[in-house]
Design a protein around this nucleic acid. Structure first.
Lengths: 225, 225
DNA sequence: GCATTCTTTAATGTATACGCAAATAAATGC
DNA sequence: GCATTTATTTGCGTATACATTAAAGAATGC
């Protein structure tokens, strides 16, 4: 429970937050159906805010509302991840380019640098959860520095689904040492204001990560189905 | 009125369609506020479907719901268009690449070829409306051929806003002769299965179009405000 | 025993009612 | 006359009730 629950947040907002959390945590498993009224009872509110929340989560691609069938939690297939990574590759590369063009000061790049440091520490400690968290921070901050609000929104939307897939891949994939090097190279290009380098390096980084992760998901597809 | 109105479409769906249309046509002008109850009365339904529709259109960036202020129709600034075109540049270039990789047959490329033909005719006849329509078809079909459903969804979402901006630029911009040549080059690269060429040519095409259109919007910013 | 139709059920789509909070208007104190 | 506080209004958030319709089950005819 956060500090504010019934206070400043509306029921609709709580429903969005809670349902999202339940989906990401797997409490609402992929592929399962749930009636609006069940969810309403679970979260202790009426159907109205549940419907509004479901509508929002539907537009984010986390679930699907089907008349008479209830809301279905959408599974994330390897094909889905391929689509998502394709988009992230393009939009994050753009962000890297724009961030390099912007000529940020060392201070303004502190969060980005910090996330790389955290990833290094996590690798050292072989703490994959911590690494994943820092990795997400890096990508999120990179996109923020890119300065395009719509890119930010799209990436945030997709990152929910990436997070779900990561639950599968994180403990199977090789230790992300190479990944950390990639991040450093991109960071350097941004801090040296070299847009084309930042763009291309990040693009390569993403393409490699995508190939690896989709490969893993493909292999384990049968397991999860 | 389409063939089906009260028949197969729910009120929520009608509200989405009608509100979207009213925004695109300018009937609901950018920057204006409207109470949920007003809109409900206008469309002859209760607030519930209006709210659900507004929620969807909000996620598409056409409007904003603000407590006690009503729903605000969001204006499209030149900054907005810069953001949108940046995204379209990246995602459509990806689509062009993927379309070229897919190795479509002549038949499968018929719609794309047709849209180019229509643009040529429109230029000939100096019919800018027809040209815009064909141009939109080209980009839409290109993205479809790219085979990424999420890209399709994002582009469709943004194209609503592009359409609103076009109302400003269409009759000011130079006759899009160069644009047609660009399209032909991209088409050829796709039909010859040359992904890198398709990607780069389309990218250049988009960057030029963006620079031109944002320039126009920038100039006429004062007029519209 | 199977198929078809009717009945019933159950879940959604939508209307409506109401409480609450925010914005505006009014009133009182200084 | 201005500021501050109090009333009032008004629009939203949400609960709830109801109508609609699709799906499931029962029953009847063949």
């Amino acid at each position: 429970m956060k500090d504010q629950d019934a206070k400043t947040l509306s029921n609709t907002q709580r429903a969005v937050r809670d349902l999202r959390q339940m989906i990401l945590s797997g409490e609402l498993a992929a592929g399962t159906d749930h009636l609006e009224s069940e969810l309403a009872e679970t979260l202790g509110m009426s159907r109205t805010p549940i419907r509004e929340a479901a509508l929002m989560l539907e537009s984010k691609g986390l679930l699907e509302m089907r008349p008479r069938k209830g809301v279905r939690i959408l599974p994330v297939s390897s094909d889905d991840m391929r689509e998502i990574y394709d988009i992230l590759t393009e939009l994050e590369s753009l962000a890297a380019q724009r961030a390099a063009e912007a000529g940020y000061s060392e201070d303004e790049l502190a969060v980005l640098a910090g996330s790389i440091a955290k990833m290094d520490q996590a690798i050292e400690a072989e703490d994959l959860e911590a690494w994943a968290e820092a990795d997400e921070l890096f990508h999120q901050e990179l996109v923020r520095l890119g300065g395009n609000k719509r890119v930010e929104a799209i990436v945030a939307m997709m990152s929910d689904q990436v997070r779900r897939a990561r639950a599968t891949t994180l403990f199977i994939r090789p230790l992300p040492v190479k990944s950390n090097e990639d991040h450093r190279v991109v960071f350097q290009a941004i801090s040296e204001s070299r847009p084309d380098v930042a763009r291309e390096r990040h693009r390569e980084h993403r393409l490699q990560a995508q190939a690896m992760l989709c490969g893993i998901l493909e292999k384990h597809r049968l397991t999860s189905l």
